[in-house]
Amino acid sequence: MASAEDIFCGLLRLADDHLILGQRVSEWSGHAPQLEEDLALSNIALDLIGSARALYQLAGETEGKGRDEDQLAFLRDERAYHNLLLAEYPNTDFAHTILRQFYFSSFQQLYWQAALESTLPELAAIAAKSLKEVAYHHRHAADWVIRLGDGTELSHQRMLAAEANLAPYLGEMFEKDALAGRLADAAILPDPAELQAAFAADRANILTRASLPVADIESRLSGGRSGRHTEAMGHLLAELQYMQHRFPGQQW
């Protein structure tokens, strides 16, 4: 049986993935390789923040302690954020950013598709809205993975480097711990383990078209779901939380 506490924690994981990745992608605004990408990346960040808001609102209502989206998004300690480590991985360069986006979008598209069947109707509604957005994120990122993998020797090398750095984090997306198990059994959230095969097929298809090698999905680096983050997370939170920490309890 999944308790209200379980549902709250499950929604928080999902909301944190979207907030933290949205925060990362938003760092590109005004600095992208071309104007069209400034628009596309800002748009993707905006969608991710939008999904995060809907999920935090639902989490707050589920918790029933009167915490709103901002209290949940800004006022927790690092160990209380439960996002995938992939989401907090620094932008590094456009190759890392685009490959990270492709991996997250491929996973999230499958996730939202499955979540349409959730027994929690508010979540199914968020899934339906987010699915349209993530389909665009996926197409945009996959097109770039192919262009960059296939483009020039330099772009190919950069994609190989990005793949080597990000691959160790992929397994975390499919981890099914006790909480994920209870939520999947109650058909509230999708079973992440069941999404791995379809993800692997999508990844193999796009990497092959990008002339990039397809290595196995590794689970070497994980811990985000239980709040053990990378060194990069503290810096991300320092910026994200700056105003709320410096001026507690104000309206903005």
Partner: peptide, 12 residues
């Protein structure tokens, strides 16, 4: 920083 990205898109 974006030069290699634009060049790759053209090459592709």
């Amino acid at each position: 920083d974006g030069a290699w990205v634009r060049e790759a898109a053209l090459a592709h």
